[in-house]
């Protein structure tokens, strides 16, 4: 099953011994997915985890992303293309993709391109100031949340930033409401 393209710079992008078991254990570690909410997997690599995940969650729209077009091609050649699965590359980012409630990282597939994958992962999770603002733009929101530094973006930090801020805008009201859920 392992083809030659499942490596990058000589590094194998999945478990050389039992990639299927690795994929299953990875799936178990992820949060339980609620059906009908889209999921994106960052890192296709050898593809076992993507195939297993799509198979096990037939009602979930699964997006699988890889920076390397060869990995997408490899997947298309070696695995079943489930109806609920869409493979995407760098050119697809920022072109009408949904805001993903679930962003899963398969780090074994990142080898050799760790920092590039990390940037995409942070962008999808809206974890940095830039990516947070980028997602707001995608949603058509002129957000009032304006982080001054590169602090970690959590609901607490958003809440702290809005503390004392005038609360006439719907966006501020929603963030403050959400803040109450994790007190």
């Amino acid at each position: 099953m392992l083809s030659s393209v499942a490596t990058r710079e000589g590094r194998i992008l999945c478990s050389p011994r039992d990639p299927l078991r690795e994929a299953q254990r990875w799936i178990e570690r992820q949060s339980r997915v609620q059906s009908k909410l889209p999921v994106i997997i960052v890192g296709i690599g050898a593809g076992f985890h993507v195939s297993e995940f799509a198979k096990q969650n037939p009602e979930t729209q699964v997006y699988a992303f890889d920076l390397d077009p060869k990995m997408i091609e490899n997947y298309q050649n070696n695995f079943q293309l489930y109806l609920n699965l869409r493979l995407i590359g760098p050119n697809d980012l920022g072109s009408g993709l949904p805001v993903f409630p679930y962003v899963f990282a398969f780090r074994a597939a990142w080898q050799g391109l760790e920092s590039e994958f990390l940037s995409v992962y942070c962008l999808l999770k809206a974890e940095t100031k830039e990516s947070f603002l980028a997602q707001a733009r995608d949603l058509g929101i002129q957000t009032v949340v304006n982080f001054k530094s590169q602090e970690a973006i959590t609901i607490k930090s958003v809440g702290a930033l809005l503390e004392g801020q005038s609360c006439e805008q719907e966006e501020v009201k929603i963030w403050k409401c959400l803040r109450e859920l994790v007190r």
Binding site: V99, P101, L124, Q135
Partner: peptide
């Protein structure tokens, strides 16, 4: 592994 905007959008 979740984006805050997902919660925002749902609310």
């Amino acid at each position: 592994n979740r984006s805050l905007w997902a919660a925002f959008r749902q609310t």
